[in-house]
């Protein structure tokens, strides 16, 4: 590929980065609040994809309304997952919570493959495109970015402006102290898990408007979310958004210089290097 392709690739990648960042935001929020790495993240992203798909193809619901529905379903699903699988082991070792959330992963994938099979699906929407020189921005991508930015802004507003949001942050900071202040920490944890899940589903829903997918597609995005979250610092929401942009940009730009198959190698090497050299993330304090 030539350098001509650099600008369009970079822009494309950056735009995708917003959607990646949204998924990573969900993962990092859950980790930040309760130190749980949610291994059901991938299947939940896939559920977001299928929520939009089913609503659209079976009931003719506009995909962007479907995104809203996916978010709501995600919130409830997350709260349910919290009480079923996480609440009892919230203070156990990381192995326990990893396996508890992984068991949810197995259950979702197990049931969903029976219902949806693993054949690829896609949603056909055409919102036109914006052209300038050799840069083409598809309408669907533009809307996805706008939705992602909106959702992220809403989350920040919620966490920093509302009483409940502040309570969640208090619980994240110090659960015992928060309880002494009269905060029902269990409810806040459940809510945080619900919001994290809603973010993952929203991101999956948006991805469904961009690419084709199967019920197993979530796995790839889950790993990507890990990379992004570590890049931005585990538990750091702003870091996740920035990390999403960095990874999206890298993916866009690297494909200009490298065969596509080498991109994940670079990503994972960066991932391990960041863990070793700056475990608090690129934005965090030095190790």
């Amino acid at each position: 590929m030539s350098l001509e392709a650099l600008l369009p690739s970079a822009i494309d990648g950056l735009m995708l980065g917003f959607v990646y960042g949204l998924a990573a935001l969900g993962l990092t929020l859950i980790f930040g609040v309760m130190k749980v790495i949610n291994l059901s993240h991938g299947p939940i992203i896939a559920l977001g994809m299928f929520a939009v798909f089913i609503l659209f193809s079976s009931f003719g619901v506009n995909p962007y309304l479907g995104v809203v529905a996916a978010a709501l379903v995600g919130l409830l699903l997350g709260i349910a997952i919290y009480f079923v699988a996480v609440d009892r082991v919230i203070d156990a070792t990381e192995l326990t919570t990893l396996l508890a959330t992984f068991s949810v992963n197995l259950m979702i994938i197990g049931v969903a493959t029976v219902i949806f099979t693993t054949s690829p699906r896609s949603i056909d929407i055409d919102l036109g495109a914006l052209r300038a020189g050799n840069v083409t921005i598809l309408g669907t991508h533009g809307v996805a970015v706008a939705v992602a930015v909106l959702v992220a802004a809403a989350l920040y507003g919620f966490l920093f402006r509302t009483r409940t949001g502040k309570s969640i942050r208090a619980v994240a900071n110090n659960r015992a102290a928060a309880e002494l202040m009269g905060i029902d920490s269990r409810r806040m944890l459940a809510l945080a898990f619900g919001i994290g899940t809603a973010l993952a589903m929203t991101s999956g829903a948006l991805l469904a408007t961009l690419f084709s997918f199967t019920i197993l597609s979530g796995g790839t995005y889950e790993l990507k979310s890990f990379v992004i979250v570590v890049l931005g610092g585990l538990g750091n929401p702003t870091g996740a958004l920035v990390g999403g942009l960095v990874i999206g940009f890298l993916e866009g730009v690297l494909t200009v210089f490298l065969p596509v198959a080498w991109v994940p190698v670079v990503e994972y090497v960066i991932f391990v290097a960041v863990l070793l050299l700056r475990p608090a993330g690129l934005l965090g304090a030095r190790a």
Partner: peptide
């Protein structure tokens, strides 16, 4: 058909 789901359920019960 539900092999994975059942495995998941058993894992969850064990962990909990």
């Amino acid at each position: 058909n539900f092999q994975l789901a059942i495995a998941g359920l058993l894992l969850l019960l064990t962990v909990l």
